[in-house]
């Protein structure tokens, strides 16, 4: 392992060569939008919001999955990047059925925040209005697939931190959904420990605690990095 220096948005920064562009950027207060990334969980590289430009590479690279290297020059903001990031947000809004006004996470939603931060003021692609379901069979929690953006944070936290692996992804493409056990109702799950970690890490109102009304669902996802760090210290 060695320490490298690089430039992010023309600022000189330094980091270990096993760290990613995103980690170094956040350490230095440089904001790169993300949805599927959560500190403490494995890297998915799925939402593509954190794509950045790296000098010498014709491709855009995901900041969450790209290690820093000596002399690297990274741009996290450009007209081109904003164009693609806005389109990705538009894709997500058009894909599900996101009705903010009646959503439990209204005002505390990372999809909503990303849309505001990127200046998404209209959706330029046709809404797909999919026919999606709600599973309210669990005693404490529910999942509204209409609001799910398939970031798979719930899948990862359940497998990697709780160790239950209740959640997974079923089917594929536009039909893909997060599922519990072998696509059985959540309430019937033999593996779920009802720990609620999945609910806390969900960036939207898809996973929620029962009894919350519109705008009332506040989530705390910071526990993941704390848990992971403390466990690392133990071993």
């Amino acid at each position: 392992m060695s320490v490298v220096t690089l430039k992010i948005d023309d600022r000189d920064v330094s980091g270990r060569d096993d760290e990613t562009i995103l980690e170094i950027a956040r350490e230095n207060g440089i904001v790169i939008p993300t949805l599927c990334y959560l500190e403490g969980l494995s890297i998915a590289g799925a939402c593509r919001l954190c794509l950045v430009e790296v000098k010498g590479s014709s491709k855009l690279l995901p900041a969450c999955a790209t290690r820093v290297s000596e002399g690297m020059e990274v741009s996290t903001q450009s007209e081109r990047l904003t164009h693609y990031r806005r389109m990705i947000i538009e894709m997500l809004f058009a894909e599900g059925n996101h009705i903010c006004s009646v959503c439990v996470s209204n005002g505390h939603c990372q999809l909503q925040d990303a849309a505001v931060a990127l200046g998404v003021d209209h959706i330029g692609v046709p809404y797909l209005y999919p026919n999606r379901t709600v599973d309210a069979s669990h005693e404490l929690f529910g999942i509204d697939h209409n609001r799910c953006i398939l970031c798979a944070r719930c899948v990862r936290v359940c497998d990697e931190v709780e160790g239950a692996h209740t959640w997974d992804v079923g089917a594929r493409g536009i039909e893909a959904r997060v599922i519990t056990d072998f696509r059985t109702p959540w309430g019937d799950s033999d593996t779920c420990t009802s720990c609620g970690k999945c609910v806390q890490v969900c960036p939207t109102g898809a996973l929620f605690a029962k009894g919350k009304s519109a705008g009332e669902m506040m989530k705390q996802s910071e526990f993941v990095q704390y848990l992971v760090a403390m466990r690392g210290r133990q071993s």
Partner: peptide, 21 residues
């Protein structure tokens, strides 16, 4: 491509469906 997309990343999952439409 739409039906064979794994559904992991947003551009391929939603973009292929939009283009197909």
């Amino acid at each position: 491509c739409m039906s064979e997309s794994c559904g992991k990343c947003v551009p391929c999952r939603v973009g292929t469906a939009q283009m197909y439409q």
